[in-house]
Design a protein around this nucleic acid. Structure first.
Lengths: 237, 237
DNA sequence: GGCACCCTCCCCATTTTTGGGGAGGGTGTT
DNA sequence: AACACCCTCCCCAAAAATGGGGAGGGTGCC
C-alpha cells in the first residue's frame, strides 16, 4: 500500500505537462478508491487550472453558472485553515440545496474532504477527495488518509504551479514600508487625515504614498489598491 | 524511526497549551537531530506567536530590530511556494550579510529549510529546520525529510491556530448577494456609477447595498468595508 | 560618484463619496 | 399569515478624494 503510493508520487513528480498531471489525478483517484479527486487552482491574475475527475459536462456548467460563488465547498475552504469535511459545511440555504442536487445528478458524491492551499500573491488552490461511503466508513477513511492526502495535495499543487510557470513568475510588486503603512491605515477604516495623523506625516505626504502604491498595484482608485493589497497579502488587517 | 515520529505526532496533537507546543518543538528538534526548529505565525490581526529553539536573547534582538524586514528567509518564504532551501536565497546585500553574521553568532546554523504556510485573511506562518551539516549531507537530509517536515509543519500550524482560537474566530457576517456584488465591483476598481451600470441597477440602489454592507461589517467607510470583505473571504477578487 | 528609490512637504479646481432620510414590492421561513 | 430580509428607486447638502504638478534630502547599490 505504502509502496504503491510512493510509486505514484514518483510518477507525479516526473509529470512534464498539465495533461500528464491530469492522468496522475486519475491514477490517484483509483489508488484512494474514491469517486472523484479534484485539484483546482486560481492564481492572482485570475487564471485558473483544474485537474479533476468530474464529468466535462458538470465542469462546463459549473464554470458557466459561476457556481463557485455559491458552492459551500469553495466558500468554506476559502475561509478556513486545513482540512474541511463537507459535513461541517452549511448546505441549508435554498440555492445551495439546488446546487447540491444538480451536482449529485452530475455524479458528485456526498462525502468530501477538501484541503485549501495558498501561495503568495493570493494564489489559492483546493484539493478534494469525494466519495459515497457511509458516515462511519467515511470517518475511518478520513482519519486514515489525511496524511497521505496532505502529501499528495502539496505535491500536485507544487507540480501544477511549476508547470504553469507560476513559481518563476513571482515578480511580486513590492510596496515600500510607508506605502504599506498608508494602505493599512486606509484598510483599517481611517480616512486620509486620520491616517496621516496616525503615521505622523502630513496628509499630502500620505497621498503621495497612496498614489505610488496605486500605480504599482495598477489600481484605479484607493479602494481598488487597498483591495488588491489585502488580496495579495501585501498588507495584513 | 517511523514509529518514533508517529508517537511524537500523537503527543503533538494532544498538546493543550502553547507552552506544551513549545515542548513538542524541542522534542521534534531532537527527533530530526538538527540544531533548531522554528515555528513562527503571524495572524491577520498582526498578532504573533512563535515556538522555537533559538536563544531568547536572539529572539528579543530579532523582534526589537525588526529583522523580519531584512531576513531573507522570511522575505523568501513569503514570496514563494513550498519549501525554500536557504541556499537558494540571496544573502549578498550588505545589511543581509551583517544580519547573517549576527544570527550565526547567536547560534543559528547555516543550512536551513523553510516551509511557508498560509491561511485565510493573510495568516502566514513559517516552519524552519536549521542545522550545520555539510552540503552533501544536508542535501540527503532534505530529500529524505521533506515529507516528514511537511506533515509536522502542518500539524504544528493547525495546533497553534487551534490553541490561539483562530479557527473558531470565524463569526463571518453574511452579506446578501447584491451586497457582495456591489463590494466586488468596488474591489475591482470600478467607481459607483460604473459599478451600478455593470450590475444593471441605479447608482442610488448601489449605495443602499454599500451602506448596508458597511453597517454589517462595522466599517467606517467604503474602503474599510471592501478591505474587510476581502480579508474575511466574503468576496473573491 | 551617479543612479535609483524612498521619505517628506505643498497648491488648485473638479469630481466623487458620504450621511441620513423615505417608500414600495418581492421572497423565504416559521 | 406574519415577519424578516432582500431588491429597487429617489433627494440634497456637506465632506472627502482625485488628478497632476513641483521640490529637496536621505540611503543603499554598482
Amino acid at each position: 500500500m505504502a509502496r504503491k503510493l510512493d510509486h505514484l508520487i514518483d510518477t507525479l513528480q516526473q509529470a512534464e505537462t498539465l495533461e500528464a498531471l491530469q492522468a496522475r489525478i486519475i491514477a490517484l483517484r483509483d489508488f484512494f478508491e474514491v469517486e472523484h479527486l479534484v485539484y483546482h487552482s486560481v492564481n492572482a491574475a485570475g487564471g485558473q487550472y483544474a485537474a479533476l475527475t468530474y464529468s466535462d459536462d458538470w465542469v462546463q456548467r459549473y464554470i458557466h453558472s459561476n457556481y463557485d460563488r455559491i458552492d459551500p465547498v469553495v466558500q468554506g475552504a476559502y475561509s478556513r485553515f486545513g482540512f474541511v469535511d463537507w459535513k461541517t459545511l452549511d448546505w441549508t440555504s435554498k440555492s445551495v440545496r439546488a446546487f447540491r442536487e444538480e451536482s449529485a445528478a452530475a455524479g458528485v458524491a456526498t462525502q468530501g474532504l477538501t484541503l485549501p492551499m495558498r501561495g503568495p500573491t493570493g494564489q489559492f488552490a483546493i484539493f478534494t477527495v469525494n466519495t459515497c461511503t457511509s458516515d462511519a466508513e467515511w470517518s475511518r477513511f478520513a482519519d486514515r488518509s489525511k496524511q497521505d492526502i496532505l502529501l499528495v495535495a502539496s505535491l500536485v499543487n507544487e507540480k501544477a504551479l511549476e508547470l504553469e510557470g507560476a513559481i518563476e513568475a513571482a515578480p511580486m510588486q513590492s510596496l515600500s514600508p510607508r506605502e504599506k503603512d498608508s494602505l493599512t491605515m486606509l484598510a483599517l477604516g481611517l480616512n486620509r487625515s486620520a491616517s496621516a495623523e496616525k503615521l505622523g506625516i502630513s496628509e499630502h505626504t500620505l497621498r503621495v504614498y497612496i498614489e505610488s502604491a496605486r500605480f504599482k498595484l495598477a489600481a484605479n482608485n484607493t479602494t481598488h489598491a487597498v483591495a488588491r493589497a489585502v488580496a495579495l497579502g501585501l498588507i495584513l488587517i
